[in-house]
Amino acid sequence: MAVNVTRTRINVPGGVLAFGWLLVVLLPVYYVVLTSLRSMEGFYSSNPLLPPAEPTVDNYGRVLEDDFLRYLLNSVVVTLGTVAITVTVSLMAAYYVVRNGGRLAGLTYKAFLLGLAIPLQATIIPVYYLITRAHLYDTLLAIILPSAAFAIPLTVIILANFLRDVPGELFESMRLDGAGHWRMLFSLVLPLVRPAVVTVAVYDGLQVWNGFLYPLILTQSPDQRVLPLALWSFQGQFQVDIPAVLAAVVLSTLPVLALYIVGRRQLVSGLTAGFGR
């Protein structure tokens, strides 16, 4: 911990910038929450930054009636599915890369490193082609498969970096006890790398939860709609009913906000996974 202890004088320019930016961050958040509690009549007539005279939760009711829970469930399925696949196959790959140590393992690691540089946006047309060919278009699986594929490189790299710190003797002694790869993976590796698994799972999960492009190009029916896409179509559907649209924005953020309040440290370390050095 190397923070200078001498910084006790008041830092005026720093403080001005810090609180100025705080205002910039909080103003839209404040506006969204406030407006989501306004009635339609109050919406057009009152000052948008003053609290509503008669706050109402009707907007939330309208959003919930409009299949919001269905979209929420879809998002949960897609997020959990993607994270489960990504973490499982990445942990296996990381174990192989670190424990094998051969030429092929080195090449595998390099391939994943290279994979970090592939921009997801640039591959949407071939991915769309593959998904329609596989008759998966307009299913949740269509979102899960490519999302997992793009989460795998970073996940493998972070887990592999973590696994390298596990002393080799631990593996040796287990091997002498006759443990196979699978037993080592589950009874040795998994407990040891649990913090790293949580970190990458949070990072991958948030990416998928907020993902927009794959759902946009790979699904179309309301049945398969996930939250970010639902927000977008609420906007088209409710048109001028901005309070309802913003209520949907608030509702879609609540699960992540709850997670932020419960596990802020894991979430923040998850957000900078692999970059925070």
Binding site: S90, M92, A93, V97, F112, L130, L145, A148, A149
Partner: peptide, 18 residues
């Protein structure tokens, strides 16, 4: 053990790139 990860990555990232 790296096969599933490579398979996913190959099919949905490398193949699309080509």
């Amino acid at each position: 053990m790296a096969v599933p990860a490579l398979l996913f990555f190959g099919v949905f990232a490398l193949v699309p790139l080509v």
